[in-house]
Design a protein around this nucleic acid. Structure first.
Lengths: 252, 252
DNA sequence: TTGACAATCAACAAAATATAACATAAACTA
DNA sequence: TAGTTTATGTTATATTTTGTTGATTGTCAA
């Protein structure tokens, strides 16, 4: 990627998210932090953004809020770590499924450096994240908007997805258990995740450690059906061994 | 390959990609980097692209044009007047179609006082407008997001709409003429509007006075197919009489 | 307030890219 | 055919960008 392109994208990201960490940018664009710092300095001189300790915020939001609150905003979370690892699995030219969750939303934020990928997602927030990213073709299955999760759900959503195939499906879940597999409280969400997984070459689960040893009502699939699991920390031994046995790649 | 041919292709690639590296071009065309640099210098002189360290970017991507945001800001008073009139046609319990335009967006902003209506729309901006309105059930046909208009378009969008019926369709257009009827420059938009009109009990056109006596390539329908036309001012006599004759209600 | 930690900065080194000057080869012209 | 033009490649040098290191500074929690 050209350095001007990178700067442009940084400016876009800051404008959209309000603020971002230096470390995150370094990770997303695979350049050293020093380079990011230099980029930010240039952009600040141009008045595009305001630098703060740890990263940068958009010039507008800074004038209203105190620096402390802003810092809070840009703090990295487990989700960002998972999103970072997940983004490294995506190749140029890929066709990917994203279900609608805060974790996949974090992943969507890391798609700025791609030139040509297709993303199919049921999350309205994710659609909004992707709508201005040039290199991403955005496809929505549509459906009825669930105002609680801001996901499109329903029979027509499922039908749409049944007719699509993708290289990779990035799915999150609320409950993981060796016995019960992946489970979900909401049946409609379950259907969607199920279809996405079935129609993807590579089935990738995004789940932080709070999800282990929990069981919900509706079954999505067995753990052994997955190809990759991305977590924030090394999972419990029993899970780790199970994953190894079933030839599931674990990233953390 | 001829050198002019190569330059043409480089210009194309830059326009399509937004930007490209010198090294990449050298690789693609199997010429030395020096030759690429000379090509880029020529193309820059012609104003086709802008050279940057490491390659070149399209001259356009450097300019800060955002068509949708600009369009949003012109003729706002007319649009608001039309939206206000249109909102009075909606009844509690209705099921309505909204196409994706700045005028229908203005209408969407006026749906806060409804308790129970269903809205089907292809406009992402409209979806965002409606997502927090409690009394509105939001349905999206989905499809491929057109980043210029921020509308969902494509075959699947059409199929979705073909299977739906609504009480009222609110459609805008770029061109109105007695002879040519409603016309549109974009064929995909045309299909969508056509289907929305066909599947609605009441066909309502939203169009400010700038649209009259204009003809575009793709025909949506005849003027006589419409039930209601909402404008910002009383239309020209010839239109006014035509509407009366064809029993079309005119609001302004 | 201070110590621990992370982020920044400054200075330098390394890598990538651009430029200029010259050499070569092909295409064109008289 | 010889001479001229044009496009391209090569090399050496200059410039820009990026990475690395260690010193410095900012932040937070004890």
């Amino acid at each position: 990627m050209l350095s001007v392109e990178r700067k442009l994208k940084i400016a876009e990201m800051v404008g959209k998210n309000g603020g971002i960490r230096t470390s995150e940018l370094s990770d997303i664009f695979s350049v050293s932090e020093m380079t990011v710092l230099r980029d930010l300095a240039t952009l600040e001189k141009q008045g595009v953004l305001t630098r703060v300790y740890g990263g940068a915020v958009s010039s507008q939001s800074y004038s209203v809020e105190t620096p402390n609150i802003v810092r809070e905003k840009i703090r990295t979370t487990e989700k960002n770590k998972i999103a970072s690892l997940a983004s490294k699995l995506i190749d140029e030219g890929d066709n990917i499924f994203l279900d609608g969750s805060t974790t996949t939303h974090a992943l969507a934020k890391r798609l700025y450096n791609f030139k040509k990928i297709k993303v199919v997602t049921i999350g309205l927030d994710i659609l909004n994240e992707l709508k201005d990213i040039e290199g991403v073709e955005v496809i929505s299955p549509g459906g009825v908007l669930d105002k609680v999760t801001m996901n499109f759900l329903g029979r027509s959503t499922e039908e749409f997805l049944e007719n699509l195939n993708s290289d990779k499906a990035f799915i999150s879940t609320t409950a993981i258990s060796i016995k019960a597999g992946l489970t979900e409280p909401n049946p409609q969400q379950t259907f969607i995740k199920k279809i996405m997984l079935e129609n993807a070459q590579q089935k990738i689960l995004l789940a932080d450690n709070s999800k282990y040893d929990v069981i919900a009502l509706n079954r999505i699939c067995d753990l052994s059906d997955l190809d990759v699991i991305i977590t924030d920390n090394k999972p419990d031994d029993k899970y780790f061994h199970f994953f190894k046995q079933n030839n599931i790649k674990v990233l953390y």
